[in-house]
Design a binder for these strands. Structure first.
Lengths: 248, 248
DNA sequence: CGCATATTTGATAGATTTCAATTTATGTGG
DNA sequence: CCACATAAATTGAAATCTATCAAATATGCG
């Protein structure tokens, strides 16, 4: 199987927000790296470990996280097919956070120097990567609001809304999508305890908002859900592709 | 007074993490825009308002924030001299969050197209701006951990540690620095109520960790403070400048 | 089947918020 | 420079949300 098959979701993601020439598209698809299968619940990158390659998620679900000394975890982002959890370490090599495979996942490890090379040769790619970094940062800012100023149930709903929209972008169904997190994972993403997360999820089912069953989220009332969580997908910047650099 | 005086702190910040040629440095200093004095507690940018210029903080303290419909605020970042609170909107024009002047502040509004022009002409500047975006994102990730997994007192201490290091970078004293926030501002940054913030700050004073008096933070025991908050400045990436793009 | 992991439940403790009132600072116009 | 209005900081008491602990049940997997 050619590597470009693995790179296609990544290219799609870049092109959902940025405009790339044929040549640039080919350059992205020409990237390659070690293909790896990760088992579920596997911590595959430790914080601060300087990496010589960056990860591209092909399939599955990965989480970026911070940790307190007591061992408590805080997930700061989820990454699915086409996402690069540690793209930032291409330009800031020390900027690695811990990465976890939430479920059995496939990744490709692309050497940093290769990604840098295509970015330096093609301004459009550099721009696209920069834009991708910005959108991830925008999602992070929204997470701060979520964890800082919303109550338990609302936090979980907001997270599910985000995942619904992101699943839909990569071709999934926003109203019924795989979300292979354990309740502990959801707790770690929302800054709650596992017990309280469990009770909040039960409340969501009782109120006919969402059901999470067998790692599949079923949205029962999308409109109600969005309103309840004050969810507005604008912060994910999925309106259409842009380009500022010149096309050669 | 030449504009370059205003731009110098911005250039210094870029150069603390990125290497720029003389020509690029001159291009940065050649940027200009409308100079504005903002009164304290002034909301000078609303969320989602598409801007034609980006803000550069010259002096004072500004905050980026999200807001719930109920009007509760969550500060997602502080910005001081040399920082650009909305640099991201240069590449993603819709990505504006609300901005607040914490105290009387000075900013320069630099038209997006000017910033884009220098970035497109000088790969080193584009790289530096991208890197700056990444470092801000790294700080955001740390804020998620702070708000999600630390208790009230620790959250505040961690925030103060960050501000101490950032003040020191721009030539301030890390052990005694101006921090013109109200307790409500600190509450909004840490995801706490104003009352609980007040009590936590009193606890810090009682335990001889930190004193906040007349908007000045006095660090009484830096080592103890850092250890208490598990603070490690590594996530701010202040180790020294890098450059990957070719020097012409 | 049996072990390990995940979910669920109940009871209790604790941290944080809310409400309401008071005191203390801050700024402004006369 | 004072008086006043306003904003900020502080206090107390009660309510609420969330965490913790411990145990039981369910689920997945070799």
């Amino acid at each position: 199987m050619p590597q470009s098959r693995f790179l296609q979701p990544f290219l799609d993601k870049l092109m959902s927000r940025s405009i790339l020439t044929d040549k640039e598209q080919a350059a992205v698809l020409g990237l390659s790296g070690m293909h790896e299968h990760l088992p579920a619940h596997y911590d595959f990158v430790d914080r601060g470990e300087e990496q010589i390659s960056v990860c591209l998620v092909i399939d599955g679900l990965c989480a970026r996280m911070g940790q307190t000394i007591a061992g408590e975890r805080q997930i700061t982002a989820f990454h699915m097919s086409g996402d690069m959890p540690d793209l930032h370490s291409v330009m800031v090599p020390g900027a690695t956070s811990a990465l976890l495979a939430v479920c059995a996942s496939q990744i490709v490890r692309i050497p940093c120097h290769k990604l840098r090379a295509v970015a330096l040769e093609h301004p459009g790619i550099a721009e696209a990567l920069w834009r991708d970094t910005i959108c991830d940062a925008s999602i992070s800012a929204e997470w701060i609001v979520n964890v800082g100023r919303r109550d338990a149930v609302t936090r979980i709903v907001h997270l599910l809304c985000e995942m619904a929209v992101r699943r839909a972008r990569i071709g999934g169904n926003a109203f019924s999508f795989a979300f292979p997190c354990t309740q502990q994972n959801i707790a770690d993403a929302t800054g709650l305890s596992a017990v309280h997360t469990n009770r909040s999820i039960q409340m969501l089912r009782a109120r006919h908002f969402v059901e999470i069953k067998d790692k599949v989220v079923a949205v029962l009332d999308w409109k109600k859900l969005q309103e309840f969580a004050e969810f507005d997908s604008g912060y994910m910047h999925l309106h259409g592709p842009l380009r500022f650099s010149a096309v050669h």
